[in-house]
């Protein structure tokens, strides 16, 4: 985390761009810009700025956004819910679709079903997310008017509106993750399907479903869970295209807006947050290995 903190702080200061000039606006004079720079403390030496930031960080204070006149922690808190909701619904949808599809493809390897699933997988990887988004919007929001074009409704404002507004963004995002996880699932299951213990289970007369669930899927789970874990981390930090296409005010958009505006306190805080999330998710994934495969010990 310390490395992340130093790298983020230095990268932001060393890239071109001046938040004071952005804040001041196009009609501002050099004096206005200088006054704002001084007010934000950007005229101080880098080392001093870093120490001040670290000191605040140690007290759990991410500071105030240069632009929003709000505490960064408050800004992040506002944006966490949409991102978490989108990530959760996408992952649930992905797991519900991708794992069965991957298992089916492996189980019926070489058949039309396998080729269909893998064909979808290639398509899911190849078509850009925003194209899928626009196509879904055109069909389901404009032509059929079944769901809204854009926006996010908070859960406390009604479950119906909350769910309806998540349908298209979740499907859009899930397409690529279903493609990825179905492929990984297929490969993992194929590997296990050829294992001796599966042959033994079948030879003992076990039905195909228990063989797949108890012996195949459980032993193929480690790589699948790893990819799902990475997927969750990616979803929390990197869904800016989907958030933009559907106008969802989540963390991805906050990050991009903050980077474009050179809002240093906000960028630093969200990057630190993302790194914490990555570390935690990786830790959970690593711990889950011991439950999925008792042979793994730490």
């Amino acid at each position: 985390m310390a490395v992340v903190a130093v790298v983020v702080f230095m990268l932001l200061r060393l890239t071109t761009g001046d938040p004071a000039a952005i804040i001041a606006g196009d009609n501002a004079t050099s004096q206005d810009v200088a006054a704002i720079r001084e007010k934000l403390g950007l005229d101080r030496p880098l080392a001093e700025q870093f120490v001040i930031w670290l000191g605040r960080l140690a007290r759990g204070d991410f500071g105030e956004s240069f632009f929003f006149k709000k505490q960064v922690s408050e800004l992040i808190a506002e944006r966490v819910e949409p991102t978490l909701a989108l990530a959760t619904s996408t992952i649930v949808l992905t797991v519900l679709l991708a794992v069965p599809l991957g298992v089916l493809a492996a189980w019926r390897r070489g058949t039309w079903l396998d080729r269909l699933v893998m064909g979808f997988s290639v398509l899911g990887f190849s078509v850009p997310v925003f194209v899928i988004g626009y196509l879904l919007i055109y069909l389901f929001a404009i032509e059929l008017a079944w769901v809204p074009v854009q926006g996010y409704q908070r859960l406390r404002d009604g479950l119906g509106g909350f769910l309806v507004r998540l349908i298209l963004p979740s499907i859009t995002l899930a397409v690529v993750f279903v493609a990825l996880i179905a492929r990984i699932t297929r490969a993992s299951v194929l590997e296990v399907l050829n294992a001796d213990y599966v042959r033994t289970a079948r030879a003992k007369g076990l039905a195909e479903l228990p063989v797949m669930l108890r012996h195949v899927l459980r032993n193929a789970a480690v790589p699948i869970v790893t990819v799902i874990g990475v997927g969750i981390a990616v979803l929390i930090g990197g869904v800016v295209v989907t958030e933009s296409v559907y106008s969802i005010p989540g963390l991805g958009r906050l990050t991009v807006d903050a980077v474009l505006a050179r809002d240093y306190p906000t960028v630093q805080a969200v990057i630190l947050l993302f790194s914490v999330v990555y570390v935690l998710i990786n830790l959970l994934v690593d711990l889950s290995y011991t439950f999925l495969d008792p042979r793994i010990r730490y």
């Binding site: 919007i137 074009v149 854009q150 933009s244 296409v245 106008s247 005010p249 958009r253």
Partner: peptide, 16 residues
């Protein structure tokens, strides 16, 4: 605030 122009236009066409 809808940053994507195409989405903004879609929202207008849909009456949102």
């Amino acid at each position: 605030w809808i940053p994507d122009h195409q989405t903004a236009i879609n929202a207008l066409l849909a009456g949102e």
